[in-house]
Design a binder for these strands. Structure first.
Lengths: 144, 144
DNA sequence: TTAAGTGCAAACAATTTGCATGGCA
DNA sequence: TGCCATGCAAATTGTTTGCACTTAA
């Protein structure tokens, strides 16, 4: 359970370094849950105004590469990131109002098993983002 | 089963028009299965070189709006479109080599029902894009 | 006839990259 | 000390928009 220590090790194991910026990005993600690069940069810059947006992008790439962070895809123009340790549930995004629900990823394990049986593909359901409509928006269809 | 006729009607019902460009976009999608706007534009331009990329974007928006086409999200920088009538299966994209497998969307109906039960969200599993690793790529992990 | 659709070019927004400097190991 | 990481600015890439012209209904 020593996140901070494991963090440095995991990076070093791949020839990457532990830096203040990368820690700030992790802290921002822990704080925000899931967020876009810009959200993360904003949060980080409250503590370190000089951290550049491109550094956030590069930090996110590094953290995804070592497996500490996962990338989602909210819509065509906005990537979404979250901590892997925070990813024991899948997200359902409402296409009407952008509300987000969370469901245990265990619910999807049967589907994952079936897909593997049928296609041989290993699906990682821990980082799954589904789209749907929340109870309130179900009454007002998309093209109304 | 008269796709062409239904096409015009569906558009007209929303005050939209049937045009040669929109038909070409539909034909391109029927041909390509799933494709990015640029892929589609390339295909369309083989028959009608003057069709502009922005027209393809606008045609796709219109077709999504009337429910003939669905939008997916391959990665941060590329939307993916496909015909709804071609969408009775969900796609699994290999993160290693970009291979694509298809599985009947019926497999996901149990998950959708469970999510609705738990959260009240209606999930549309007909247009689901999952990520995983194909049999070949499972042997070579992401950050190797 | 007339509102919707198109082509073109310019505007935007998200992300990436080159390069010189700074800092972990 | 060497190599990775950062800041900055410029370059790319994907997508949208304003406008005058064309066309389906």
């Amino acid at each position: 359970m020593q996140r901070a220590r494991g963090f440095g090790e995991v990076l070093r194991a791949r020839g990457l370094r532990r830096t203040a910026q990368r820690e700030l990005v992790l802290a921002a993600l822990a704080d925000l849950g899931h967020a876009t690069p810009e959200d993360i940069a904003g949060r980080v810059q409250r503590q370190a105004p000089d951290v550049n947006l491109s550094t956030v992008y590069r930090a996110l790439d590094a953290l995804v590469e070592v497996g500490l962070v996962a990338r989602g895809h909210l819509d065509r123009a906005a990537a979404s990131y979250h901590l892997v340790e925070h990813a024991d549930h899948l997200h359902v995004l409402c296409e009407g109002c952008a509300a987000m629900a969370e469901v245990s990823s265990a619910e999807a394990s049967a589907l994952a098993a079936r897909i593997e049986e049928l296609s041989g593909f290993a699906v990682d359901v821990r980082h799954l983002l589904l789209r749907g409509r929340c109870p309130a928006c179900r009454e007002s269809p998309p093209g109304s």
